[in-house]
Design a protein around this nucleic acid. Sequence first.
DNA 1: ATATTAAAAGATATTTAGGTCTTTTTATAT
DNA 2: ATATAAAAAGACCTAAATATCTTTTAATAT
Lengths: 148, 148
Amino acid sequence: MLSKSCVYALRAIVYVGHNGSENHKIGIKEIGEELDLPVHFLSKILQSLVKHNILQSTKGPHGGFYINEVSGEIKLLRIIEVVDGLSFFHKCGLGMHECSDSHPCPLHDDFIVFREGLYKIFSTKTINDLVKKVEEGNAFVRNLSNKK
Amino acid sequence: MLSKSCVYALRAIVYVGHNGSENHKIGIKEIGEELDLPVHFLSKILQSLVKHNILQSTKGPHGGFYINEVSGEIKLLRIIEVVDGLSFFHKCGLGMHECSDSHPCPLHDDFIVFREGLYKIFSTKTINDLVKKVEEGNAFVRNLSNKK
DNA sequence: ATATTAAAAGATATTTAGGTCTTTTTATAT
DNA sequence: ATATAAAAAGACCTAAATATCTTTTAATAT
C-alpha cells in the first residue's frame, strides 16, 4: 500500500523526532543502523523531505537531521503525499479507470470504507503523535531483532 | 495493495462468470478487449488460475475459459492467495519485521483494523457474490470508457 | 486424418521500485 | 585559512513486476 520509501520516511522521521533535537542532530548513518534501513537509499528519501520542509538538516560537523516545532505537527498524509502521492486514496480497489457510486466496481462499497478509514487516520495523526507513542513506550520504530 | 495481476484476475473471473458458461466459453481475446487488459499478460495469470482449479478452460475451436459450479463459490481470498500470496494480511503497515500487540509499530492499532477488515471481506465474499452484483446492474467490471 | 482454433508455454523486452557507490558541497571547529 | 565531518547530488546497478511476441500443444469440426 505504502511504498518502502514511504514507510522508511515515516519511521526515520519518528526516530529523529524521538532521538534528536535542534542541538542534537541525528546522522543518516545512525538512522540507517538503528532502523535497519539502507543508508544511501534512505538518504535520498530524507533529502526530498528536507526540500519539502518536512524535515530539517544541516551539513558539516555535528550536522544531521532534526525536526523543528512546525514539522512535528505535520500530518502523516503530507509525508505520504510527498513520497508516494495520494493516488491510493482515490483509486479503485480493482484498478478500474472510473469507480464511483454511480459506476462502482463490485468491491466499491466495501473498499471505500477502509480506504477512507485510512485516509482519516493519516490526515489526522501527526508526526508528534507517533513520537509520543514511542516516548511512552507504547510503540516502536526499531526492529525487535536490532539488539543494540 | 493488490497487484495488477491480482485485480486483473478478479475482474477477468467475474467477467467470465457473468458472460460465460460451460457451453459458452470465453476467449482470452474477448476478455482482454472488454476489460482493457493486456491479453498475453492476462493469459499467464489465467493459466495459473486454471492450474489451481479456480478457473476452467479448454483448448481448440469453441474453447476458452469458464467457471464451473464449484469455482463460483471460491472465496476471493483464495484468488489473492494464488496470485499475490497472503503476506499483506500479516505484514506490518510500516514494514517492521515484528509488529504485534506486544511490540507494535506506532500505527499498529489503527492499521490492523483496516487490514483485518479487508481480510474479512475477502475471506467471506465469493466470485458468485461479485457476479451477482454485476448481473443485477449494481456493479461493473468493464471500464466506463469501453464504449462497445 | 486433417485443418483449424484457441489455450499453454516459452522467450524476451520494458518499466518501476529499490538499492549502492562515488563525488561534490557546505557548515563547523581548530 | 584549513581540515573535517556530514548532507546533497549524481551516476549507476539490481530485482521484480508488468508486458509483448513467438512457438507449441490440444481439442474440435469437417
